[in-house]
Each structure stands twice: as C-alpha cells, then as structure tokens.
C-alpha cells in the first residue's frame, strides 16, 4: 500500500508501522511445515529448560533390580536401560544437552563465519584470497572426518565436540555471508551511505549485514539440526559426551548390543534425535520459503 491512501487521516502523530520482522512472522505462521517444526522445537526447548521439573526420575540414578524393564513397567514410561536408569528422564535431560550443543556450536560457526565472511567480502584483496583458500581446504575434508580430527587434537569431551562442530560448520557461513556481502556492497543504498561518509564498520555490520541475514538464518536453523546429529555421532564414537552423561548419541552407543532383546533402550534416543533434527529442518525449510524475496507476492 502506498502512503497516499491514508493521507486523508492527517493526524500529526507519527504513525507506527509494522516492522519487516513482524511481517515475516505473519507469513511464517501461514507455512504449515514451518509451524510444525516450530512446535517441535518449542517442545524440546521447554523440556530442556524445565528438565528437573518434568522428568519423573533422576537420569543417573540406577535401579539395579529393574534393569532393562520394558516401557510402562513400574512407572518407567519408556522403560529402563541396561543399568536400570529411567530412559524418559535421560531423554529429557538429553534434550537439554542436545539443544545446548546445537545452539552453541552453531553460535560458534555463525559468529566466526559472519565476521570472517563479511570482512573478506567487503575488503576483498589478499585477505579474501587467503580466507577463500583456507575455506577450500576445509571443505575438501569430509565434514565428519574434519570434526573428528579437531576433537582428536583438542581431546574428547563435550566442550571440545561443540568447538569442533562449530569450526567444521564455519566454512559454509563464510561462503554464504561473503556471497551476499559481495552482492549487497555494490547496491545503490550502500553507495548512498558511502557518499555521506559513513565508515566501513557501520557499512559492513550496520547496513550490509542486516540485508544479508536471511540465508544465514536459514542455514543456522538447519545447522542446529545437523549439529545435534554430529554431536550424537561424536558421542557414539566416544569422542563427545562421556558416560554417565545422558547424551542421546551416547545412549544409543552404549546400548546398541541390546537392540535384539531390549529394543526400547536404543529406539527412544534414536527417535528423539530424529524428531529434534526433523523439527529444525522443517522450520529451516519453512524459513527459507518465507524469507526468499522471489516468493513475496
């Protein structure tokens, strides 16, 4: 709508307008997959935050008498594992871990990637050339292998796993950000802001970056799902969380030998991982559709 149609109102108050953020939100709510993803994510987040309140048992406490109880026995809704620990409680505490891992590793990847990518794209030159070659080398390694190498160097624990995942995911943010910065920095509004003498820092992070955010947000949402998966994989290999931490990947790893006689011990952590990753992917794909300027009207 143009401003004229309401010009007749003619009040002298400054009219508040909905921000693009709000419009994006409204469009997002129309996307069924995104809403489904958002609900799943919110559910896991709530479980993670209120883990001590909602979990029926202590996730580490062992009930030796009732090891490997099937679901719905003696108040163990999802049964117990090989050491008699309540699987549901472990899954709930595991959600806490997985969410934290996802968010922190993506945070590392995003902050590092955005900073490097923005500077690299904005200034170009030798800095850009060096950065891009390093990125090429990093991307030449298979993702999992790169993560494993980094953990192996840093030492196997949860913190280092997050750092490793963050570093392995960083190249794609660098590339993504650099590409949109390259496109945006040539636009007229940047030239206009330069023509009034705006400094490089403000141009980079105050003007160009906000206009390059859409693909980064989509990537980071998808990245959280992937990070959860990677951390599960690392823990499965013994390079991430160490027992008795209730991490989903670790739960699968330590119980895989019981898959034939106590299916629930392996299955539920697997399902939890699947559901969480699915949630982030659905939300990420939905976001991509909503933020894609070509799809706006």
């Amino acid at each position: 709508m143009t401003a004229d149609s309401s010009e007749r109102q003619n009040n002298n108050e400054t009219i508040q307008e909905p921000s693009p953020l709000r419009e994006t939100w409204l469009r997002l709510l129309k996307n069924k997959a995104a809403v489904a993803g958002l609900i799943i994510i919110t559910l896991f987040l709530l479980l993670a935050i209120f883990a001590p309140l909602v979990s029926p048992h202590d996730p580490i406490a062992q009930d030796i008498e009732f090891r490997k109880s099937p679901p719905f026995t003696r108040g163990y809704i999802l049964g117990t594992d090989e050491l008699g620990r309540d699987i549901l409680s472990r899954l709930i505490y595991g959600a806490r871990l997985s969410m934290t891992i996802g968010v922190i590793s993506v945070g590392i990847a995003m902050i590092g990637g955005v900073a490097v990518g923005t500077i690299s794209g904005y200034y170009g030159g030798w800095f850009d050339k060096i950065v891009m070659r390093i990125i090429d080398i990093m991307l030449a390694f298979p993702y999992v292998l790169l993560t494993i190498v980094i953990v192996a160097v840093l030492g196997p624990n949860l913190t280092n796993a997050m750092i490793a995942i963050g570093i392995s995911q960083m190249p794609r943010y660098v590339r993504l950000v650099r590409a949109s910065v390259l496109a945006e920095k040539e636009s007229d509004y940047i030239l206009a802001e330069r023509s009034i003498g705006t400094g490089d820092f403000e141009l980079m992070f105050g003007s160009i970056l906000p206009n390059s955010l859409a693909p980064i947000i989509v990537q980071s949402t998808l990245g959280v799902g992937e990070a959860i998966l990677s951390s599960a994989a690392l823990s499965f290999l013994g390079l991430g969380a160490q027992p008795p931490i209730p991490e989903w990947g670790l739960m699968i790893a330590s119980s895989r030998e019981f898959v034939t006689n106590a299916w629930w011990i392996v299955t539920f952590p697997g399902l939890a991982t699947l559901l969480a990753v699915l949630g982030f992917n659905l939300f990420g794909d939905g976001l991509r559709d909503v933020l894609d300027p070509r799809l706006k009207e």
């Binding site: 143009t2 400054t14 009219i15 307008e17």
Partner: peptide
C-alpha cells in the same frame, strides 16, 4: 508528510 517517518521504504 513527517508522520510517515517510521515507515519502511517499500511502503511508499
């Protein structure tokens, strides 16, 4: 009109 100050460019 100055009261449109808080609009975004695409709204014009």
């Amino acid at each position: 009109a100055p009261q449109y100050r808080n609009r975004y460019p695409h709204q014009f």
